[in-house]
Computed example of a mutant assay.
Amino acid sequence: MNSTLTMSKQELVSIAQRRLDKEVGTSTWSTRQKLALACRVLYDGGHDAGLAGQITCRADEPGSFYTQQLGLGFDEISSSNLIHVDQDLQVLSGKGIPNPANRFHTWVYRERPDVNCIIHTHPAHIAALSMLEVPLEISHMDTTPLYGDCAFLKTWPGVPVGNEEGEIIAGALGDKRAILLAHHGQLIAAKSIEEACVLALLIERAAKLQLLAMAAGTIQPIPPALATEAHDWISTDKRNAVTFAYYARRALRNHTDCLV
């Protein structure tokens, strides 16, 4: 007997959410391992741009975070070669030095206590879209986690190694999880490594779709209420966890050294 055929959409959504909450557990990867996995996932997802871009996450010690060594590409990051730095970018443990551009991450962390992971990259489609000085447009179901959740900074403040750029970028980001930086790249500010990684891949796909659609015609908007509903439906911790786990398994087939 098909007992769900007469249920409302909200009832079906509630059932699906309860199943997801019950069946999806937490990963056994450490914070450092997840950060290293995210680097390899991002590399495979086209976020590599030489040494441009940084990934950070809060460490247990207040006011400190893990990040990659300057000089290593995303495809070279492992759990063991991450470094632990404070808000002045002084190395607390590990070898090497951080990217000086990590300074603007510290501004975001100070302004947003809800943020535990930041990913800043210059992938090709985001970089191309940023050159047009237009905001990201969300007009496809798959990209709705960014609907109403992606800020835009139209004026390029220069290389983000000073405090001024940090203040400007953190202010433009506001309470959103993503920002498109004109003539620069993208930044994701999320509450977990899993969420940040998934959104970083998604914003690059959204930019690619936008450029393809703009080349073919005029992008048509989607209904705000339905877009908001889709944003909330997809943007959950458990969905981010299962999505990240898939990307991580795929990355581990090609990058067996990242967990060491």
Rank of each mutant, 00 (worst) to 15 (best):
L146R: 05
A225R: 12
S139T: 10
A101F: 06
T243V: 04
D86H: 09
N116Q: 09
A36S: 15
T228Q: 14
T155V: 13
A245R: 00
V24I: 14
W156F: 14
I15A: 08
D60I: 11
D44I: 05
V85E: 02
V260A: 13
A49H: 09
A49R: 10
S79L: 06
Q68K: 15
D60Y: 01
A124W: 10
H255M: 05
S27H: 10
V260S: 13
P98D: 03
F65Q: 04
H84I: 14
E195K: 00
L226A: 13
S79W: 03
G63S: 12
I219M: 14
G50Y: 00
I234F: 12
S235W: 05
Q87C: 14
A216N: 15
T6H: 13
V115L: 11
V41K: 06
A230V: 03
E167I: 15
Y66Q: 01
N240C: 09
G50Q: 04
G25E: 10
E23Y: 12
E133M: 09
H183L: 03
L209Y: 15
V85F: 04
C39D: 07
A16D: 08
G94M: 06
I83Q: 02
T243N: 03
G148K: 01
D237I: 09
G73P: 00
T31N: 04
T26W: 00
P145G: 01
A241K: 05
L42R: 00
D114Y: 03
L199Q: 02
K95S: 12
E133F: 06
F104R: 01
A128W: 08
T143I: 04
E11Y: 11
V134Y: 08
D88T: 15
L132N: 07
R177A: 09
T4E: 14
V159I: 15
L259P: 00
P123I: 03
V134M: 13
H84T: 11
C197K: 02
E195H: 01
L146A: 04
I203M: 13
V91L: 07
A128P: 07
L92H: 02
P62I: 13
E167M: 15
K238S: 04
R177K: 13
R250Q: 08
G71R: 07
T243F: 05
A230G: 00
K95Q: 13
A182V: 12
L132I: 15
L201P: 03
A227K: 06
G171Y: 03
R239G: 07
L146G: 00
F152C: 09
M7W: 14
N99V: 03
K22I: 04
M7D: 12
M131V: 12
M131D: 04
A196C: 01
T6N: 15
L252Y: 01
S139R: 05
D142V: 04
S8C: 11
A36V: 10
A216M: 15
V24D: 03
D114Q: 09
P145E: 03
L35F: 04
A190G: 04
W233G: 03
E167Q: 15
D88C: 12
A178G: 05
H125L: 12
S64K: 08
I169P: 01
P221V: 10
G94H: 02
I138E: 00
K154C: 11
V260Q: 12
V134R: 14
A245Q: 00
L180G: 03
